[in-house]
Design a protein around this nucleic acid. Structure first.
Lengths: 329, 329
DNA sequence: ATGTAAAATGTAAACGTTTACATTTAACTA
DNA sequence: TAGTTAAATGTAAACGTTTACATTTTACAT
């Protein structure tokens, strides 16, 4: 079967220890020996058995990346950013969407205890206490993306949801002169959603503007329904700020159906700047976040933790947000 | 540190062999022993060391998934499908985009030789011979997505590019009555692109319709440029069939700029049915493929190969395509 | 040449499981 | 009750590396 270190050693007429050293670039082996070993290894098409390596080193070169679901554009960007950085550090990325048949809690328990992974990146917009308790017991470093802003116990990479929502709301009120605003929220336990709502509310208060809140769950359908509810009220809002672009699209769908005009009759704003947003008619005014940066930062932070296991203070990184002004407001 | 099988054994007053058997549900251990061991394992929060397991079994529970790039909507769906199936079989998905600093060939060599993976799914729309040669030497099962249709040496899961393009072209000619068509191709070595072009050409010939081919590379920008070239000709096409939706969007961009009308002056068709397509104005007529199915099939096929190592004939699965008729034609 | 220190290489244990084979225990049979 | 067989458990080797420690070789000073 596959060549092992033994065969390389025997052909090179050295011990396996020397082969091991040569392959790991230990400065103690002479140039000639090193060269001879590499030549023979190549000839035999020998590649170290990573399974054995990871095992004996008691440390794997695998990083887990748990995502709530992996269909979303957002998550794709995260995967890409994470993978790119990790790969350059010699680690592989193991992705897992939260699987139907297993709770997130169980999945985390498995991942943090089975020694398969050197670290874990967890994208958890709705981190629950039962999960947190499990994370605290973890034997491997963990970096959180997007969890509770009050969370001090873990390294955390976050979107600047509050700031983004605040700025957008300010824009709607101050620059565009809308009063009577409405906000479509995300799922009630989703922390991104909560922070966005907070930013919205705070700006409305600051600028003394009337507002209302309509529940949603980040899906297109809930955007449709929420928009309908809002526009059927007697005191209908002049502008609807959807908690994410997908719900904004749901708003478009409903508004198109009624024949109303965006932004003349209702203005719509979103959050995320997904690809489709620039191609809607009218194009959607929204908040953009550098998502790939988040993935990269998460990976970088995790590698730091893995390498210097130090209990240095937990890191918090906030990806800044940026208003993307288009035609829908 | 973490509990090992030894501690469980000593607390349960049995040998580690019995513990191992109990954990693997070997029918030879009595109910009582089994129960006792599981109880103690739970108490100690013992989880088998997967690295040791994989090592001693000489077989990992990791499947590699190599993607040309992972930002695309297409690839996301593939990942999702693959992950879902693999997880239910007890395998984890290790994703790797083709990394800047390493050639695909080297990456495959590493993955197929380092014993880290039990199998490999390779999405390679432009498989080269140098890569094929490496794959043939692989020590682990490999399933290809989307490679050369003449490829008989590997299990292969493919899109029905030819059929989809043929049907779309037929629709443009027969149903819509367009003559003078143009096709925007994908990258020259991309097999999907090649098959789509073939389907287009064959339908044009079959129905005796004039056509031209304009080069492209699947990017929005190349769609813009290709569209411009086509529309600036004296004999400009009545309909442009873009090799993928992204290039169709590029066409829209150019046409919008010129103020021409879709579909009254030029009709546009795409391929892929990415999310944005339904929201373009006018909405894009395109070809839809069940991408998630492809991922699932690839995973299923790979697991079959891993479990019954048989040299049964290579499998070819073709995901069927479906015309999505909207407003752009 | 001889001694000494440094450099290079070798030896063997260890990592935590699984599993072939050996042994003990339990369950019948006559 | 002893003998036989099947069931349950135990013993120890193996998997392919890395690495602490031991040994050999080399280089250099005397």
């Amino acid at each position: 079967m596959a060549a092992t270190i033994k065969e390389v050693a025997s052909q090179a007429k050295v011990s396996i220890a020397t082969v091991s050293r040569a392959l790991n670039n230990d400065p103690r082996v002479t140039k000639e020996t090193h060269h001879k070993i590499l030549t023979i290894a190549k000839k035999l098409n020998y590649k170290p058995n990573e399974l054995a390596r990871n095992f004996v080193r008691q440390k794997s070169n695998l990083i887990g990346l748990i995502l709530p679901e992996i269909s979303d554009e957002f998550f794709t960007e995260v995967i890409k950013g994470v993978d790119e950085v990790l790969y350059n550090y010699g680690y592989y990325t193991l992705v897992a969407s939260s699987h139907k048949y297993k709770s997130l809690r169980d999945e985390i328990i498995a991942f943090t205890n089975n020694r398969l992974l050197a670290g874990l990146i967890l994208l958890a917009p709705d981190l629950k206490l039962t999960v947190e308790e499990v994370l605290l017991k973890s034997k491997i470093p963990i970096v959180l993306i997007n969890s509770d802003p009050n969370q001090q116990k873990f390294d955390r990479i976050a979107l600047d949801n509050f700031e983004g929502a605040y700025e957008m709301t300010k824009y709607l009120i101050e620059t565009k002169g809308y009063n009577n605003l409405a906000f479509l929220t995300g799922p009630s336990n989703n922390i991104d959603a909560g922070m966005r709502e907070k930013g919205f509310v705070e700006a409305c208060r600051k600028y003394n503007t009337g507002y209302s809140i309509e529940p949603g769950d980040f899906t297109k359908e809930s955007g449709f329904k929420g928009c309908k509810n809002l526009l059927l009220r007697e005191n209908r809002p002049r502008a609807i700020f959807a908690g994410n672009d997908m719900m904004a699209i749901g708003c478009y769908d409903y508004i198109w159906k009624t024949g109303m005009k965006i932004p003349e009759e209702v203005a719509i704003a979103g959050f995320d700047d997904i690809f489709v947003s620039q191609y809607l008619s009218p194009s959607l005014t929204t908040v953009r976040i550098q998502i790939e940066e988040i993935g990269k930062h998460a990976a970088d932070t995790l590698i730091q933790r893995i390498n210097n296991d130090s209990d240095s203070p937990k890191v918090v990184f906030k990806a800044s947000s940026e208003l993307v002004i288009r035609e829908s407001c």
